[in-house]
């Protein structure tokens, strides 16, 4: 084989690896909605929402409970990704990355703001207020946000094929969204805060992708991601929860009541699914770009609805099939794009 064919093969392998990480991310992200929904029904979170509901009203109760769930979610991800980084020997690189605040780690901290208190918190709100299927499909529009922001802000190239693929995925997402929403509305009635949470998730995940893309080209993905989750956990545990404590919410009482076997097991599943979903996503970004990476990772919507159907028996109907098919066609269009271009940046 001549050197040119070898170079093309090497490049194809690299792109394939990027898409593979993005597909892993989609699968793990889809699974996350199962423990993410189940956790609301377990102690201390269920008693917490009831108790605080009696003293401060339902809305405050669900927001405060979603904050504690998000905080534990971040803490579990620190533990699960910590193990990953321990095994892969990344802690020295994490330290080296974290101290480069001006040019690198500040973007991951900003990504943590977009991803944590906006996207992940919004997702837990949507899961708690409306349901897992809705929460999953509500944020399907996030690649639009990330692709446009990444393109306008730092010129990430979106090829025509990638644009068509993203468009098809979005149409598919909207179709799934409508199906899920109609089902949820018929079953439970509209909970506006849950729907706002869904919108927060779409905006937050999209912004996070674009912001992280600004720092990820200078950082090792695992190191950058760990800095991002350290920042998110710090925000929850050292800023937001102390503020709620000052406001008189008994956060520590409920936080200390989390050590029940089933609750801990579900939290571990949250850490494993969402932590490694992020790890896979951040590995895909440098190889195929933020727009395309998130475009493929968007298949999580379909995965989530299927997993929820399998584990919880919630079937959103024919719009799921149409939407799911469109998502698959869209990601195939993106996957089959011409891989002869060397760089993803203009």
């Amino acid at each position: 084989m001549d050197i040119e064919s070898l170079k093309v093969n090497e490049y194809k392998k690299k792109v394939k690896k990027g898409y593979m990480w993005a597909i892993f991310s989609a699968l793990l992200w889809g699974i996350w909605y199962i423990p993410g929904t189940v956790i609301w029904t377990l102690n201390p979170f269920d008693t917490m929402s009831i108790d605080i509901g009696l003293s401060h009203g339902d809305t405050a109760a669900l927001i405060v409970t979603a904050i504690l769930i998000s905080a534990f979610s971040a803490a579990m991800i620190i533990i699960t990704l910590g193990l990953w980084n321990l095994v892969t020997g990344k802690f020295k690189e994490i330290k080296r990355t974290a101290v480069q605040f001006k040019s690198c780690s500040k973007w991951f901290i900003l990504a943590a703001v977009c991803g944590g208190p906006l996207a992940i918190f919004g997702s837990y709100l949507a899961m708690g207020f409306v349901g897992g299927a809705f929460a999953a499909v509500a944020s399907l529009l996030f690649p639009v946000v990330s692709s446009i922001v990444a393109n306008r802000w730092y010129g990430e190239k979106i090829t025509r094929r990638a644009a068509i693929g993203i468009f098809l995925i979005i149409i598919g997402g909207v179709s799934i969204y409508i199906g899920g929403m109609v089902t949820e509305m018929m079953a439970e009635g509209v909970r506006w805060l849950g729907y706002a949470g869904g919108a927060m998730a779409a905006l937050g995940f999209g912004l996070e992708g674009a912001v992280a893309g600004k720092g990820i080209d200078l950082a090792e993905p695992d190191a950058g991601l760990y800095v991002r989750f350290l920042a998110e956990a710090t925000m929850w545990w050292f800023i937001i929860i102390p503020i709620l404590l000052i406001l008189g919410f008994p956060m520590l009482t409920y936080a200390l009541a989390v050590f029940e076997p089933l609750t801990l097991l579900v939290l571990v599943f949250i850490g494993l699914s969402f932590g490694y979903c992020y790890a896979a996503c951040y590995k895909a970004f440098p190889l195929i770009g933020v727009g395309r990476g998130q475009g493929v990772a968007n298949l999580y919507g379909l995965c989530a609805v299927i997993f929820i159907l399998l584990f919880m028996g919630d079937f959103p109907g024919w719009t799921l099939l149409v939407g799911g098919a469109l998502c698959l066609i869209g990601s195939t269009v993106m996957y089959s794009e011409n891989v002869s271009e060397e760089a993803i940046r203009v």
Binding site: G89, D217, P286, E342, A343, I344
Partner: peptide, 27 residues
């Protein structure tokens, strides 16, 4: 070998992002 491949992958990622480019290749 793991450290070598890990460092090389960082270089591959820099090339993927268009920060560096290959001007000559050999096996």
């Amino acid at each position: 070998d793991y450290g070598r491949d890990s460092a090389n992958f960082d270089i591959i990622e820099l090339a993927s992002n268009g920060l560096i480019m290959s001007v000559e290749s050999k096996v």
